[in-house]
Every structure is written in C-alpha cells, then in structure tokens.
C-alpha cells in the first residue's frame, strides 16, 4: 500500500472544486487583480492584539485573526551559565503547539524553525549578563484553534509584540559575581528599551506573499494560497533587509515554478509593506503602555 504524505495541519485540502479554483486563479491573474474579499493586493486583514495578558510570564501577547485564528505567546527567561562552545542562538528556544496537531507536525516544525531563524543572532545578543552568564529565553507559542490560513505572519507578529513587552529583572550584583536580581518587579527593565524602534533594533517580522501570474498578494487566505503559483514567507527587519526567505507549498492549479522577476517584485514590495507593518505594531505597543 502506498504511503500517503502525512496530512499536516497546513496541507488539509481546501474544500473548493477544480472549477472554483480555476475561477479564483483567473480572477487573481487579472490586471488589476480581484481578490475574493475585495482587498487591495497589499492590504492586510484587520487583527486584534492584546499585550501582557499572562501575569506569570516575563512577556506575553495574544493576537486574533479575523478568520478566527488565535495565537498566544508566552515568554519566560531563565539564567544560564555560559558554555564556551555553544552557539549563541541556542539561548533562544522556540516551541510551537498547534491545536489538534501532533508535536512533530510539519507545520509546527516549520513555524518553530522559521521563528527561530527570524529572531536570529540579534536577539541572542541582548541576553548577556556579564561574561559567564546569560539569559535563556523560552518562547512558547500556542495556536489555540486549528489554523484556517497559514499562521506564519500571525505567529511572527505575536512573537514580536510579546518580545516588545517582555521585562527582565534588574541586575543588582556586580559584574563578576554570580548574578543577583532585584525582587521588585516594578524595577524590571524591558528587553527592548522604548527607543528601540527609533534605532531600528526590533525583532524581524515574517510576511506571507502569494504570487499568481504577475500579481502578488500579501496576507493570502487559504484559498488564495491554494491557487497561487508560489507562496513565500519573507522575513523583513526594520531596516528593510531580508533576514530569511522560505518557500511554502502552493497549489496545483498551474504547473511549473515562478520567474525570477516575480520573486524580485515580491521582495521589493516587502520592504514598504514591512515598514507599514512595523508602524502599526508601534501603534499597538504605544497604545498598550
């Protein structure tokens, strides 16, 4: 008996017939394109975000996506002794739990590695406590509902917000002693200081982009992803640099790959759209504090 690809939470087939998929593909290939929910190509769906919802964590956030997808991020920190040969990126541990899926579900694995890659070395660099000690950050992400559309953007926004409102206890011991911290939680220092945005040193964000013919669409729904020629998860940082890029599974309506100029267009458009996303995130954070 032929083994079938393990059905993962993300590859559950869409309940659209080939005719409906073809119709959708045609309407997305038009110039100008028509999206099923009449959004503009670079328009995101509205989302609800809350900060600091879990008092027992060092930082937390909750994002609700309009199609019902809900994501909670909790961040906890522990002090760890520095071992000489370990890569500093091991200071951040990301775990993703998708409701209704197993631990080793390909979607959960992809999301965990994608978030880990996006945060990269910059975050790890912030976790030093003197020479011999450092913080170890545990970022736990829960997707409370089985995802309807691909949750990469949802997760990265939630993690960004969670990190921005993370506070770590203030160090009171001297530099070369064993670390001792202030008991007073109000004296805790934020992981990302309030001027981080001006300096541009904030965590990167992952954007999902679907390409259909010559058109590209941000924040694609599951149906749009099913008819796309190519779906890319692009991680951008504040400076407009691409921190990482991954290709996701796209639909089977058309055959073949995607042209280089389409990818170039995707990546070029990610820069201004990314800036917009960061601006909105700043708005949320300022409103929250």
């Amino acid at each position: 008996m032929a083994p079938v690809a393990n059905p993962s939470a993300a590859t559950a087939p869409t309940p659209l017939s080939p005719a409906e998929l073809s119709y959708l593909h045609s309407s997305l290939s038009l110039r100008p394109p028509i999206r099923p929910d009449s959004r503009k190509p670079a328009q995101f769906r509205p989302l609800t975000a809350e900060l600091d919802i879990l008092p027992s964590t060092h930082g937390s956030s909750r994002i609700v996506w309009p199609d019902g997808g809900e994501c909670i991020v909790g961040i906890k920190a522990e002090v760890e002794k520095a071992t000489p040969n370990k890569d500093i990126r091991s200071r951040v541990e990301v775990s993703v739990e998708v409701a209704g899926a197993r631990d080793d579900d390909p979607l959960a694995v992809f999301l965990a590695s994608s978030v880990g890659d996006t945060l990269g070395q910059k975050l790890a660099g912030r976790l030093e406590i003197g020479e011999r000690w450092h913080w170890k950050l545990y970022i736990d992400i829960l997707l409370l509902t089985p995802p309807v559309s691909h949750p990469a953007t949802l997760l990265s926004l939630a993690v960004h917000l969670g990190l921005r409102c993370t506070n770590l206890p203030r160090l009171v011991s001297a530099a070369d002693e064993d670390p001792l911290f202030d008991d007073d939680w109000d004296a805790a220092l934020p992981l990302y200081p309030s001027n981080a945005a001006e300096v541009g040193d904030v965590p990167a964000v992952t954007l999902l982009v679907a390409a259909v013919g010559e058109n590209i669409f941000f924040d694609p729904t599951r149906e749009e992803m099913a008819v796309a020629d190519c779906v890319l998860a692009v991680s951008v940082d504040w400076d407009g640099k691409i921190v990482g890029l991954r290709t996701l599974e796209s639909g089977t309506v058309s055959e073949g790959g995607v042209k280089r100029k389409v990818i170039k267009k995707v990546v070029e458009q990610c820069v201004p759209v990314g800036k917009e996303v960061f601006k909105s995130l700043e708005g949320i954070i300022k409103a929250g504090f």
Binding site: D117, L232, V243, G244, L245, G256, G257, V258
Partner: peptide, 11 residues
Amino acid sequence: DEITLLWTKGE
C-alpha cells in the same frame, strides 16, 4: 527559467 524553491538565510 523558473524557480521552484528558494531558501535564504542571513541578512
């Protein structure tokens, strides 16, 4: 002249 997979790491 088409790309089926693109994976980049690093800035």
